[in-house]
Simulated assay, not measured.
Amino acid sequence: MHIAEGVLPPVQCAIWYAAAAPFVVHGAHRVVKEVREHPENKLLLATAGACTFLLSSIKLPSVTGSSSHPTGTGVGAILFKPPVMAFMGVIVLIFQALLLAHGGITTLGANTFSMAIAGPWIGYWAYRLTRRLHGPNALAIFLCMALSDLATYCVTSFQLAFAFPDASSGVFGAAGKFLGIFAISQVPLSIMEGFLGILLFRFLARVAAPQLAGLGLDVAGGSGTGAPAGTSGAAEKEDANV
């Protein structure tokens, strides 16, 4: 992840910008609405943004000669739904491109689409599906965090494959090679991020229980519904409006 400056052709940079823009605009609207209607959740919004910034800034060398890092986008996806992460994620990526040389401005659209859009949405739907199947809450959080991370790298692999198709096997052949490079280090890293997410939400359940309840979350509960009694209908309605 964090495709570097100048790696993608200009036309593909423009396409990824256009693909990411509607999600970012919608996310900005959702963030403004959340702050206006629920100012008590500002600290949780900051927590979600800080988690994404800190984890995705960690650059770990992999055995394949590449480098990998967690993403942390599953936290915000669970707390505020994926649209919010599109806006928060692009802010994180701008700071990282300008201050840490992670990614670039020309590739910002592509990096936003993979880390701040595709990753959170895939992780969130895994979280929702696990809850509907009445799985344990910890499992839902684990899957959201882990799959948000892993899905980001899968999308990035296809982005690179579109830019550099294999001479004989085309885009899918190139995607297989890129996935092979990332998967060796990213699968265990995703698993570790999943467990980290469980620990983080257990901590939030102790220090921010009223705010979590207001969001329709009961991460300390054992029912696996993720919503306290009397709020499940409201939570389902909110999910339908995402």
Rank of each mutant, 00 (worst) to 15 (best):
I117E: 04
L133Y: 00
L133M: 10
A118W: 05
M85D: 01
P82Y: 01
G104E: 10
Y124D: 04
P120C: 06
M88G: 11
K81D: 15
P82D: 02
P120L: 09
I105Q: 07
T112C: 13
L93K: 08
G74L: 04
G109S: 08
L108M: 11
G76Y: 06
V84L: 15
M85A: 00
I105S: 08
Y127T: 02
A77P: 02
R131K: 14
S114Q: 11
V90Y: 07
I122V: 15
L98T: 00
M85I: 10
A77Y: 04
G72C: 13
I117K: 08
H102E: 15
M88Q: 09
F95I: 12
I122M: 12
G89H: 03
L99H: 04
A110I: 12
I94E: 00
P83S: 11
A101F: 14
F80W: 14
M115Y: 09
L129N: 01
W125T: 05
W121Q: 01
T73K: 03
G123D: 03
I105V: 15
P82I: 03
Y127E: 01
I94G: 00
P82E: 03
F95G: 02
T112W: 11
V75R: 08
L93T: 03
F113C: 07
G74D: 05
F87R: 13
F87D: 10
V75D: 06
G123F: 05
V92A: 02
R131W: 03
P82T: 03
L79T: 10
I122D: 00
P82M: 05
G72S: 12
T130Y: 00
Y124C: 06
Y127C: 08
K81S: 15
L108T: 09
M115F: 11
K81Q: 15
A86E: 12
L98Q: 01
Y127S: 05
A86H: 11
G89N: 01
A77F: 02
H102G: 12
R131H: 10
M115V: 11
V90L: 09
W121Y: 15
V92S: 01
A118G: 02
I91Q: 06
G119P: 05
F113M: 14
N111Q: 09
A116S: 14
A110V: 13
W125G: 03
G76K: 06
Y124L: 05
A126W: 00
V84R: 12
L99D: 04
A97Y: 07
G135E: 02
P83C: 10
I117L: 10
G104V: 13
W121A: 01
I78Q: 04
W125E: 11
V92C: 12
G76L: 09
G103S: 13
I91R: 03
G123E: 03
H134F: 01
V84T: 15
Y124P: 06
T112V: 11
V84A: 14
S114P: 09
M85Q: 09
G89K: 05
T107S: 15
I122F: 10
F95P: 00
W125M: 06
F80V: 14
I94T: 03
L100T: 02
V92H: 04
M88E: 10
I105N: 07
M88H: 00
V92G: 02
I117H: 08
G135L: 07
F87P: 14
T112E: 10
G76E: 05
I91P: 02
L129E: 04
T112K: 12
F113P: 08
L133D: 00
P83M: 11
L98Y: 01
T130Q: 00
G135W: 01
I94F: 07
G104Y: 12
G74F: 03
V75E: 07
A110K: 13
T106P: 03
H134I: 00
M115P: 07
